[in-house]
């Protein structure tokens, strides 16, 4: 490999086309969901513990802060799911072309935003 080739790693001047943004958000949402696994397990434990703990959890989740955190978590999870389905489709040969990748990136973004809005409507 030519060691003298021009290299640009300046994040401020690199252009990020939509497929690149969809890809990096898939990673970021995965990390975010991973970090919130304890929250998920805590909610599962409370919801299955006893009727009073179930009610406690429901009351906790009515606070604005918890609702927002839950919305962030669900939005990230649904984004990861949609972007993951895009990857699986590409693995079986659907939308592997440059044009296909661009179109599926747009579809992924639209679906994810729609799901985030619907999750918000459902929570509030």
């Amino acid at each position: 490999m030519n060691k003298q080739r021009p290299v640009n790693l300046n994040l401020l001047t690199i252009k990020f086309p939509l497929p690149a943004i969809v890809s990096i958000l898939h990673r970021a949402s995965g990390v975010f969901v991973f970090l919130l696994i304890p929250l998920l397990l805590w909610m599962l434990a409370l919801s299955l513990g006893s009727p009073s703990q179930f009610d406690d959890l429901q009351n906790t989740l009515t606070s604005a802060g918890m609702k927002f955190l839950l919305w962030l978590f669900l939005s990230a999870l649904l984004y990861h799911l949609v972007a993951g389905i895009r990857h699986l489709l590409m693995d079986v040969g659907v939308g592997e072309s440059l044009m296909g990748g661009r179109i599926s990136a747009i579809v992924t973004m639209i679906c994810a935003i729609l799901l985030a809005v619907l999750t918000g409507i459902w929570l509030w």
Partner: peptide, 12 residues
């Protein structure tokens, strides 16, 4: 997390 999850589900 895995051990915690087993405890939650097998405590039922």
């Amino acid at each position: 997390y895995f051990i915690w999850a087993v405890q939650i589900l097998w405590g039922l």
